[in-house]
Write a protein that binds this DNA or RNA. Structure first.
Length: 151
DNA sequence: GCCAACGTTGGC
DNA sequence: GCCAACGTTGGC
């Protein structure tokens, strides 16, 4: 069982959208490191949903991997902003897993609140210049987050 | 393979 | 809207 953090802009796709959809595929990621992490994801892995470009940014809820990574369909759609002319169906470049909504945190954990928690000092998302939109999360950090969210 | 220019992310 | 920190692109 592994733990992950995935960022999304709530203006584009929020935890409430995920709650409504119940299931979604995480398309549009166009970063190789993030893609490689998504390929590693296994059924049942837990995902922290992070709201970026929000006021404040922070952790909004939880999801689970409900389907392992498969070729991101948007890379083949010419009209999509995620279209990649260099990708082919025989040899797709981008992959995405499917996520199932688990819960919205009763208490949204804002970035400032995460920063005050000394035990999370080493968490990747809190490191300077951490732009990666898909990150692994330590089991111990995951547990502390659940504690803060009073789940 | 180097690296400058450019584009993007994301906090503030 | 600003800008630091990246990641990517493309000329050489």
């Amino acid at each position: 069982m592994a733990y992950w953090l995935m960022k999304t802009e709530p203006e584009v796709y929020s935890i409430d959208d995920l709650k409504k959809d119940k299931i979604t595929y995480w398309d549009g990621v166009r970063n190789y490191q993030a893609r490689n992490f998504m390929k590693e994801m296994a059924l049942g892995d837990e995902v922290l949903i992070y709201h970026s470009n929000a006021a404040p940014p922070g952790l909004a809820g939880l999801a689970k991997i409900s389907k392992t990574a498969y070729p991101d369909p948007t890379q083949f759609i010419r009209s999509s902003k995620y279209f990649d002319p260099k990708s082919t169906k025989e040899n797709p470049r981008w992959f995405c897993p499917e996520l199932r909504f688990t819960k919205k945190f009763k208490n949204f954990i804002g970035l400032p609140d995460l920063r005050v928690e000394k035990r999370l000092a080493e968490m990747l998302v809190l490191k300077k210049g951490s732009r990666l939109s898909v990150q692994p999360v330590d089991a111990k950090h995951f547990q502390i987050v659940l504690e803060l969210a009073s789940v």
